Computed example of a mutant assay.
Amino acid sequence: MNRAELADFLRRGRARLEPSDVGLTAGARRRTPGLRREEVASLAGMSVDYYTRLEQSRGPRPSRQMLTALARALRLTEDERDHLFHLVGEEPPRREGASLHVRPGLLLVLDRLYDSPAQVVTDWGTVLAQNALAKALVGDTSARPARERNLTRRFFLDPTARALFPPEDLPAHARDHVANLRAVTAARPDDPEPAALVTELRARSEEFARLWQNHEVSLRRPATKRFLHPVVGLLELDCEVLLSHEAHHHLIIHTARPGTESHDRLRLLRVVGLQDMTPQGAVG
């Protein structure tokens, strides 16, 4: 691990970003250009002390999960992300299949959607990034281990993941999850991660195994979804799915039609934010 080079790379990456580049307001006058250390630490989901030690060439060796979080926080390109991994002595993530690296331009779009819940998800259901309103609507995935950020896995193995949907909507959500995963595994039969998820779910969920036998196929499409939020109540939201074919990513955006009760409740959720929320994990 090259601590000096890592520290310099992190400092320069932080200095080139403005708060608006990552969806933050500038606030009080800044003495130096770029983001503050505490802002990068918050974006990466780590303590300020931990990040400070990395910039001072005295931090511990970051995990692969932490390196991925730093790459997103600093809006690194894939080449820059790979360089970050090399500085720590780690092999960069492979680029076949659905990449776990979100392009800076897509993150910029995500940050600009401040009044609509939005998140970036792989085509097989792993949440990679969320804006603040998405975290308020469906829960924050950033602290979860990588395998527990998959929407399909959580829907079938974690009962709390279903609490944000009306009970009568659950069968349709179950079919959609299975049909989408079926389509992805057929399109990329050599990608081990979706295949491993299918194997796990067929073994652990009778519901998934039964639906898998139906051989239904359907990719994620625009739709209307209903959410039962523990604070603001029922929201009926239009779901738009924008595709990034190169990386197999989906940008999922939820909006409420103006003049509806759901529109008012979504505005309230933006004010309430993450306050007074019961523990939950992301769904979509």
Results as ranks from 00 to 15, higher is better:
Thr224Cys: 04
Pro33Leu: 12
Ala186Trp: 06
Glu39His: 07
Pro19Cys: 05
Ser218Met: 13
Asp111Val: 01
Val22Asn: 13
Ser42Thr: 14
Leu251Lys: 07
Glu207Trp: 08
Glu148Lys: 12
Arg182Asn: 03
Arg72Cys: 06
Arg220Lys: 09
Glu18Thr: 02
Leu67Val: 01
His263Trp: 11
Arg95Ile: 04
Pro258Ile: 03
Arg175Thr: 05
Ala183Glu: 15
Pro192Met: 02
Leu106Asn: 08
Pro230Ser: 07
Ala134Phe: 12
Leu43Asn: 00
Ser57Leu: 08
Glu5Arg: 12
Val88Trp: 06
Ala209Cys: 03
Ala143Asp: 15
Leu228Thr: 06
Arg226Phe: 06
Gly259Arg: 07
Asp123Asn: 14
Arg81Phe: 01
Ala187Glu: 10
Gly97Gln: 15
Ser205Ile: 01
Leu237Gly: 06
Ala26Lys: 04
Glu55Met: 02
Glu240Gly: 01
Leu274Thr: 11
Leu266Gln: 01
Glu90Leu: 10
Arg14Phe: 07
Ala161Asp: 14
Glu96Val: 03
Val241Phe: 13
Gln65Gly: 08
Leu211Ser: 10
Val120His: 12
Ser57Met: 08
Cys239Val: 11
Leu181Asn: 04
Glu240Val: 00
Glu39Tyr: 10
Pro19Thr: 00
Leu137Asn: 02
Lys225Val: 01
Val184Gln: 11
Phe165Ile: 08
Phe85Asp: 09
Gln280Ser: 09
Val120Arg: 01
Glu168Asn: 15
Thr52Gly: 10
Leu164Pro: 00
Ser244Glu: 14
Pro194Leu: 07
Ala41Lys: 06
Leu181Met: 12
Arg226Lys: 11
Asp111Trp: 04
